[in-house]
Design a protein around this nucleic acid. Structure first.
Lengths: 154, 154
DNA sequence: CACAATTACCCACTTATCCCCACAATGAGA
DNA sequence: TCTCATTGTGGGGATAAGTGGGTAATTGTG
């Protein structure tokens, strides 16, 4: 599972070197095959090992292509799901349209989220993180928690 | 299965070069035979490998030709289904009436959707994607999710 | 049967991708 | 502190992919 965050740089060719600690695992378990797609709600990209992505694909497949909302989900997620294979030096090439969507500059933040990574522009990430913490503290006690969060213990 | 999107160009002769990564598979599994038809709800074309299309055809055949809605579906899909074989350099020729229906210009976006591709004009695709994402974000939390989507976890 | 129009094949050019090597930065061990 | 190994970064160059256009073959039509 992935956790923690890494500051990386995107070079002029759009390549991103994944942290060395994950390379062996990604190679042995998924032949270095990764899927990168866009996030629905935030200006970042999602990076899945192929095996993880295929589970999502199965769920997507079971959605109705006649229901507009479900079709939309299929189209956004699947339509942007790009196969990004690691090259022999552990780098992946992010296509321009994905970089654009997340406004990726040179400085990148790679964030581990268990079964996937999130790819953020460094400054976007910083801003969002600050805003999220602020929101969380401001809401403390005042906003109703969802059922699942009621039982959440750290 | 097909996924991800590819920016391609339609040349003056109406030819579209499919991504090299799929050509071998399409040749060995379907002798390079593809079926292109129009989409029911969106201004794009659908491109099926022959084997996939034949499954659709069976379903269409089982519909009643007396029920107006079902008859309409048959007429639209079947009536526009065009055989598009790959030539020896991996290109297919899109007939003019199909190009017109999807308002295809020079810049094309080929979008993988599991068992088929969607063929969009690049700007139409961009606009639609932006609108879809906006809709998705605006609805977040406010609109009732279908049962299937409740359990959807990325 | 001849002609025009369309389609397919072929070759050439441009662009993008991948592999490789080199260097810089970092951290570990002697 | 020095050396060595590992990781991250940058860029040249071979190779493949995408694109455009000429020409031959095929099809359909009068």
């Amino acid at each position: 599972m992935f956790r923690g965050s890494f500051t990386l740089t995107l070079d002029d060719k759009g390549r991103l070197a994944l942290p060395a600690r994950y390379r062996d695992r990604l190679l042995s378990e998924n032949q270095g095959q990764l899927i990168c797609t866009i996030d629905l709600h935030d200006p970042c990209l999602l990076l899945f090992p192929l095996a993880e992505w295929e589970e999502i694909e199965e769920k997507l497949q079971s959605l109705s292509s006649l229901n507009p909302q479900e079709r939309r989900l299929q189209r956004i997620l699947l339509g942007n799901a790009t196969e990004c294979d690691m090259d022999k030096s552990g780098r992946i090439l992010l296509p321009a349209f994905l970089r654009q969507h997340a406004s990726l500059g040179k400085n990148i933040r790679l964030v581990g989220q268990l079964n996937k990574f999130e790819i953020w522009d460094e400054t976007t990430w910083q801003d969002r993180l600050a805003a999220d913490i602020e929101l969380e503290q401001a809401q403390a006690g005042s906003v109703e928690l969802s059922e699942r969060l009621q039982d959440f213990v750290l």
